[in-house]
Design a protein around this nucleic acid. Structure first.
Lengths: 165, 165
DNA sequence: CGACATAGTGTTATATTATAACGTAACGAT
DNA sequence: ATCGTTACGTTATAATATAACACTATGTCG
């Protein structure tokens, strides 16, 4: 189902994708239960679409996917944006600002800021664990109260460097 | 996004703004000369508008400003976007991804990645010097060839914390 | 139960941000 | 002076996002 599963890239280090997807969905379900929140079917639908690719999708891509799988009803943008808003708020997905796109979170529940590597060759995006502690500390030293940090690094992933160079 | 020069904030630590503005414009002129590039009057106009506030402005705000100061001609979006593209390319301005906005660079010529603190209270944005070396190093360790990094930290600046709390 | 409050969804219209495509003008080299 | 290139101008439209309001489902408390 993921459009680019065969393309070598930074994000899909071999893993059992179906399993991973199921796992994340179940974590999301549990997390919402714990927080006493409603993972409604719309919200779940949107999350599933994002989980299916692990890759960033625009809101309108998601919309198209919804309308494709369910051609009876014609969904409009606000429905998607509202689901995204919920999922973002609960840390189940992230927004990639420099792509105007959304991606499922690799570690839902860890309410930490996320960092992303964005390959401009294969368009894949990897969430990576980097300590932005230094940055946040410096912000703190300036008396700045941090809400949210966006770290998005664009470049060429290891795989793509091989294939081009 | 009108300028908010009187609002206390993170960006305008007291400085002779007129002087600073003149200085940066002159640096830009010199830098283009060195690089054998044309800082045309359109490009200069756009840069001046951004320098005038030191604050992020949307492309359409800049457009409005152009059309306000020169009501004879009615400028269209592509003109602004092309000027912005040029200025971005030369590191004379930055794009704030999470605001879809543009801001003049505090240190043109230093072709380093920029980091921003964005106050969600007073809407001011400060470019700050933080070492994102750690992040970039980690990206490098993963074999990722970095082109460009976006670091945007949202929160509440020191001034606004005083006024609210 | 049933009336209410609230949260979520659906729908229409529209705002905001950005670019494609194509023609004209300015500049710079030979 | 002409030619190739770069920048500008113009029109139209694409892509992204939200406002506003009506309707439906869900939980809750008498």
């Amino acid at each position: 189902m993921s459009p680019k599963a065969q393309i070598p890239g930074i994000a899909f280090r071999k893993h059992d994708h179906r399993r991973c997807q199921r796992q994340l969905l179940s974590e999301a379900t549990q997390l919402c239960a714990e927080r006493n929140l409603r993972l409604t079917s719309r919200r779940r639908q949107v999350l599933e679409i994002l989980l299916a690719s692990h890759q960033p999708m625009g809101a309108y891509d998601i919309l198209a996917e919804l309308n494709r799988t369910d051609p009876d009803e014609q969904i409009a943008p606000p429905i998607v944006y509202r689901a995204l808003e919920f999922l973002l708020g609960e840390g189940l997905i992230h927004r990639i600002e420099s792509l105007n796109a959304f991606i499922s979170c690799a570690q839902p529940g860890h309410r930490c800021g996320a960092q992303f590597l964005i390959c401009r060759d294969c368009d894949q995006v990897a969430e990576f664990e980097a300590s932005d502690d230094g940055l946040l500390a410096e912000a703190g030293n300036l008396g700045f109260a941090v809400d949210h940090s966006v770290v998005e690094i664009t470049g060429v992933c290891a795989e793509c460097q091989k294939h081009v160079g």
